[in-house]
Amino acid sequence: MLETLSLWFASNFGEQTAGWFDYFTNGKHLAWYASVRFTLLAAFFGALLAVLFGVLGAAARRSGFAPLRWIGLGYTTMVRGIPDVLFFLFFPLAFEQLVEFIMSRRLCSAEELATAVAWPPCQAAQWYLTTSEYLVMACVSLGIVYGAFAANVVHGAMNSVPKGQLEAARAYGFNSRQIFWNFQVRQMWVYALPGLSNVWMLLLKATSFLSLLQIADIVQWADRLGAPNYLARVGMVHPDWRWKYYFVLFLFYILLTVISERVFDWLQRRAGRGLALHGEQ
């Protein structure tokens, strides 16, 4: 398929164009294009978890039960203050150690536990981390960090739902759980979406840190492809081209931004259906 296209380019646009076509469709470049899936998956599942943590965090902050309220407040203030890169490095490692600690207590013999010099004490407790595990942990990290921002946004949006709506619901005999989910949460989206779209944009940008977790993502491939190469054996000989590859990443993220804005416009219209807003009827 690629070869046919390459021949077609050679006959129609000359050898040079065909050479560039071959360069941009070699295995390394195809791997680069394919690595976009890591970015998109991390952004999508990260955002899903962030909204989930956001709603839970906001609900905790408004809880009538004081310890839950403290957890909600602690979560939104502490996690928002931790740099996302730091959390990205901390969380997966800490989680891996925790899992290995628990597994070693269950799987290793008492003798192994007492005499071990290396970690984990026995090979059975070893947890091999591959790209998929790292990706799951990246999603959870993104979810936790940006969930804290989302919780703040959602908390504010819930306060913006007109009190009269909730009082009317109570007057109709709904219980407090029904009021929370069917009135407050149902109506708060229209106030939360502008803030959430900001959180989404931040989260999207944070997906460029995936390579910190040994995930061969678009940034890492751009690094590899752009690095100067002087060995014909390795591939096309070229000087430092990293800025060109980074520039392509700029364009990619801008494209994602434009698409996101469209989607949020549509969501905003949808969330506002049937609500009386700003004097509209």
Binding site: N26, G27, K28, L30, A31, R37, F38, L41, Y128, T130, T131, S132, L135, R224, A227, N229, L231, R233, V234, G235, M236
Partner: peptide, 30 residues
């Protein structure tokens, strides 16, 4: 989706840098 799943398929796993030609590197096919 990612489809790794080969974590323990091999007897021996060899760690390398993959960026140190001509010792170990990624060729044009990736």
């Amino acid at each position: 989706v990612v489809g790794s799943g080969s974590a323990l398929a091999a007897d021996v796993r060899i760690g390398t840098e993959g960026a140190y030609a001509p010792w170990n590197y990624m060729d044009d096919s990736g």
